[in-house]
Amino acid sequence: MSMLGPAASVLIAESLTVRFGRRIALSDVTLAIPEGRVVSVIGPPGAGKTTLLRSFNRMNELLPRASTTGAARFRGIDLHDARVDPVDLRRRIGMVLAETSLFPGSVFDNVAFGLRAQGVEEDLHGRAEEALTRVGLWTVGAEILDAHALDLPAGDQRRLCMARTLALEPVVLLLDEPTGHLDPVSAAAIESLIHALREDCTVVVATCDPALAGRISDLTAHLDGGGLMEYGPTRELFTNPRNSRTEAYLTGRAR
């Protein structure tokens, strides 16, 4: 994990500032996310973690009175360029929201929705099987497809949220509080899934749990009050934080 070779940046934030009305949610954040790594964004609630993640798939603009200055780039392309289609972008930069928000309907309906939205009509069952296998929901076999999504236990619901995003084969996966409100067993399952995911895509995780960030990520960024406190290789940041607020947060003496 510590062997960080040189890697091209897949996502870049340049002096990124996001406001909702007069409230500044993200303030002048500059960081680069290398391809094929797991990057954690830690910080207390309200630090701007979710806003940073949502900047990368242009989900902030769905909220009222959102405005962005600075730049967010995906493989060098300015995401706010007029030629960038946010719908197309969200198909390549997948996101799993912090709240479990499954669609009323079957497990299959949930996985098929995103695929159909992309115009994929062929082999929906095969793709659903593959995605559900990756998250460990295929253990009971094909009958899982007909289960009602909202009848699943909380941990399985979260995994289904991951599966329906993974089915779209995103280049980058944005995970907002992937283990929040989960029991330890389900959380561990999600964690090992994130480990496995680094084979296929870049993963950005927002979490208020530093311990999780320490276990899963190559790089860690610490946000506080909308500003970037510190960003670097996870081991360095955890063993020798340079920012006093980062040190305070990691040791539980926050604020």
Binding site: M59, L62, V87, D88, R90, F103, G114, T165, L168
Partner: peptide
């Protein structure tokens, strides 16, 4: 939001 995040 979930539907938008899935590229709909």
């Amino acid at each position: 939001e979930a539907a938008f995040a899935l590229g709909a």
